[in-house]
Amino acid sequence: MNCLAIDCSTEILGVAVLHAPDTENTAAQLLKHPYRQPANGTTPQGLVSLSIDTGFRHAERLMSAVDYCMREAGLAAEELDLLTCSGGPGSFTGLRIALSTIKGLALGLAKPFVLVPTLDIWAYGYQALAPVVVPALDAKRSQFYTAIYRQGCLVDGPFDINPAALQAKLPSDESVLFVGPHGGLLSRQLGSNSRWYFMPQTRQAPLHSLVALAIAGYQHSGAASAEAGLLYLRASDAEEAAARQEKAP
């Protein structure tokens, strides 16, 4: 299954193309070993990924990055079988740039797409390292987008939550691994616990996880609908102001 994946949920733009045309099993194997050498005389196969860490310039750079990855993967657009992007939470504008791009590609190529929750992408792959995994994205205003995963399964959240409120939800007698671009920042803002750890240097989204989860999600639940929306976890300022007014005595 040939898959194009886009992540614009943070300031780092990520694009990946999985070229695995033979079978679904090949796709799964390639995700485990993305640098497999092609057999003699065959088209190069594997995962081509590109991360661009130059701040929020996703709208300008995304399609050039897609074009580059597709050429490096040796794929023509019509050879794609599945399109995917992170479905939120994250940067509102970044998420929409990715989704709009995916929808444009889906219409032009008549191909299916799926959205993968951003926190799932960050948590995936760490379940072997700790019983509880907590990915975190800085949501500003002293809040974090986060969720609690136990043995690879989402058990609580996702939340737009402050560190103190999250702390009350975390187990104190089990190892907890904080991951994601702001896992370290979140763990430093929580009270000390010798069983809490964080993964350093994880600012770049694990694009192979996005591809793997997209393929698994598509095989399990099928494609997203044309009107699919994003998981924002936070209302617009106007809605929040209206809600505050309604609550006020």
Partner: peptide, 15 residues
């Protein structure tokens, strides 16, 4: 605007 521009660029590229 970014929604329309992103969608249109992807559509134009794919076709």
């Amino acid at each position: 605007l970014l929604v329309g521009v992103s969608f249109a660029k992807a559509l134009a590229w794919s076709c």
